[in-house]
Amino acid sequence: MWQFFHKLGSPKWFYGIATRLMPWLLVAGVLLLLAGIVWGLAFAPKDYLQGNSYRIIFIHVPTAFLAQSVYIMMAVAAVVTLVWRMKLADVFVKAVAPVGLVLTFLALFTGAVWGKPTWGTWWIWDARLTSMLILLFLYGGVIALDRAINDEKSAARAVAVLVLVGVVNIPIIKYSVEWWNTLHQPATFKLTEKPSMPAEMWVPLLLAVLGLYLIFGWLACLRMQTEILVREQRTRWVKDLVMAGRF
């Protein structure tokens, strides 16, 4: 197991694996996401109260879900950076932070668009919305802090500490609707109970979430490869790769 772990730390090894993995991730991801979105937007039944406006959940829930998962993944990578000083973990954090930022923004935006017809307001300072806004700022802070420090190693450590400090926000987002009175409704999906939504609604939603996960995987590989090429530009294998025109 440790051998695999150390292999994972080798940028060259990862570069090769990513190249082989990416087409599969992209094709499967696009297919699942398209199936979920088309099914959800066009064929799923409408809601008895909200009518068609509820359909924004087929975009809102996957983006909000991913925005939080990406942060958790970044936190795991941050621990690896701090404890094992593995370069690839830092490459991951830097590569996916902007993706997380965009996902969080999309979740907030689609939520606002849905909130206007449903609640009667675009924005309210309740615990769920506010903690999600903090997540947006955390992503922004991670990106800014990384850009602000020139030295690669210091930047990696500073960013890792910031990511770890911010991870307390994730359970707050998740449980905000249970701990406090909020305008945002509680979770429809719980691990322990049946979803309070019929299968013809949650199956397309699940497809969209899985599809977005795979597309995120593809995007993470792509961005990590770019970052690796930049960082390892002086090494033998990158020079060979560039000379051969295969990148």
């Binding site: 039944p45 449903t118 609640w119 409704q185 309070s196």
Partner: peptide, 18 residues
Amino acid sequence: DQVLAKHDENYMPPEVAD
């Protein structure tokens, strides 16, 4: 001076609700 609707976590098709 402001009334907002609070939605619950339950979704269902109109026929089921009826």
